[in-house]
């Protein structure tokens, strides 16, 4: 793929961030998230008079989407491990608060002053500190939790008969809904932050073609070193 940065001496591969399996997983996940949110909201706020989606259809849609999400997640876990992409999710704790602050400061202040992104991404480190924290929590905690609690709601006989003195299904349902709300919140913020490339569509385009067209760090080591010192 020819692009405007190829003249800077970067190899073609330097810009190939998102392999096909990752893009398929990502967009399938996105579509299933939307279906699960729509059907979940429709059932949770179900109304006789004005149903968003008819209950039977919403129930079927939610169950089928949930099963597909589970299969898709299993596929992600395997491919993530085999491809070595899991390394992207290993958090770097050193100076984490300083780096999180720098990234948050950029979003809330720096970008309006025309400052450069504090952390340029590279093939070795695709996420900025805020992204990494959010993705680790979402991918390794929230999604497995929502799948696990969804399975218990799908097979309620597997839910504990009694949990702290309450019928087991109630805490499971409340947990499932809470995670559902948080994932919905994540998705809204995720879509918005995805518009923070060099152009609004840059990141969306990258996740379709696999190639990142914005500025990249070709020597991530030096960037890491500077970030450890708390300097952008």
């Amino acid at each position: 793929m020819e692009n405007k940065h190829s003249s800077l001496g970067e190899s073609h591969l330097d810009r190939f961030f998102y392999p096909l399996w990752l893009r398929i997983w990502h967009w399938l996940n996105a579509g299933l998230f939307l279906l699960l949110i729509a059907s979940g909201v429709s059932m949770h706020f179900s109304s006789l008079e004005k149903p968003l989606i008819p209950f039977e259809a919403a129930s079927l849609l939610h169950n089928v989407s949930g099963i597909l999400l589970t299969i898709n997640y299993a596929w992600f876990v395997v491919a993530n491990f085999v491809s070595g992409n899991y390394r992207q999710y290993i958090p770097v704790f050193k100076n984490i608060f300083a780096r999180l602050f720098l990234q948050a400061r950029y979003y809330l202040y720096g970008m309006f002053r025309g400052e450069d992104h504090p952390f340029h991404i590279s093939r070795k480190r695709k996420f900025n500190p805020l992204q990494q924290l959010a993705y680790v929590v979402v991918v390794y905690y929230f999604i497995p939790f929502v799948i696990g609690s969804g399975i218990l709601l799908f097979f309620p006989e597997l839910a504990p008969e009694n949990f702290l003195g309450f019928s087991g299904i109630t805490p499971v349902a409340i947990f499932h809904i809470s995670i559902g709300y948080m994932l919905t919140f994540f998705m809204v913020v995720h879509v918005y932050l995805a518009t923070h490339g060099e152009t609004i569509w840059e990141n969306f385009h990258g996740m379709i073609t696999g190639y990142h067209s914005g500025h990249i760090e070709t020597h991530p080591q030096s960037k890491d070193e500077s970030s450890k010192e708390g300097k952008p």
């Binding site: 059932m43 949770h44 706020f45 179900s46 209950f55 702290l164 309450f166 019928s167 299904i169 109630t170 805490p171 349902a173 409340i174 809904i177």
Partner: peptide
Amino acid sequence: LWNNSYVIGATRN
């Protein structure tokens, strides 16, 4: 907080 009568769509926290 622990509404023990959970029925999706009917009872909500």
